[in-house]
Amino acid sequence: MKRSLREQIERLTDRREFMLVYLIVLGGIALSFAKPEFLSRETFSAVLLSVADQSIIAVGMTILLVAGAFDLSVGSTLALTGLVAAVFAGKGYPAGVAVLMALGTGTLIGVTNGLIITELGINPFITTLGTMSLLRGLVLVISGGQNVSGLPESFTVLGQGRLLGVQAPIWVALAVVGLGHWLLSQTRFFRQSYYIGGNEKAAVLSGIDVKRMTVFHFALVGFLAALAGVVVTARHGTASTTAGQGLELKVIAAVILGGASLKGGEGTVFGAFLGTLMMAVIISSINLLGVDLNWVDCVLGAALLLAVAADMLSRGELR
């Protein structure tokens, strides 16, 4: 089918992604006038590095929101899996074993969340609220409330190493985002997530194994939270007991900023990544402009509300 250029442009500008790119670029330009040092490679990689863990988890959270669910336990999962990796790496196991243990733990947490939801019928909010607290508690119990540090270089290189001058966490995040976007937008398997989020009952009748997909979605989020846990722990060389605290809401906010809806059935990984970047740019601006950092949360909250309201307005859905 042929579309006119005008139609193609309209189709493109219709999307939330366009609005975000526009805002990020515009914000970047404005900021570079006020603070020329903003447009530097350092700022750029600092921004990306600061949101590597969020970007990784946002991929899983996007898929979950598309399917009409969400996971509050990702911050705690990040902390626990980071701790698992640190404990194994600290005891002299090869870095590969430490990483596998962490990823396995994260996946297992996700599967457990999924099974509680599908087999016991407790809703995702309550389930992951419960596991969020439970896992955070486990972190404190296992670590005795102490951060675990003194990790071998073979492990910390995963967070501190550079390839072509770019830090490892950025590579991991970009790879996960790229792969995640491709999988969610192109594959038959992940298209099922949109149907589930659109109408779960109709999805069942259409032959989609909703229970199995739900468990898989949560397992994927758990796995990605663990990947973020490994990256963060390796970058800091420390497994902190407070790692990832409050992260779950930031990630959900970024994904919604990127065009997903709590109702399910819509959203893209690329959009979620832009939402994450947008929030990072805001924080970075506040930092560079020398504004009191205590304003950060206020500004982020207002940005989320504004973005969603503007989007609903453009679609004529705002009351």
Binding site: Y195, G198, N199, A202, A203, L205, S206
Partner: peptide, 18 residues
């Protein structure tokens, strides 16, 4: 139980035959 109301027509039509 039948349709994915908020999804486009085309996505609805192929839901059971991906």
């Amino acid at each position: 139980q039948g349709l994915f109301l908020d999804q486009p027509l085309r996505d609805n039509l192929v839901a059971a035959a991906l």
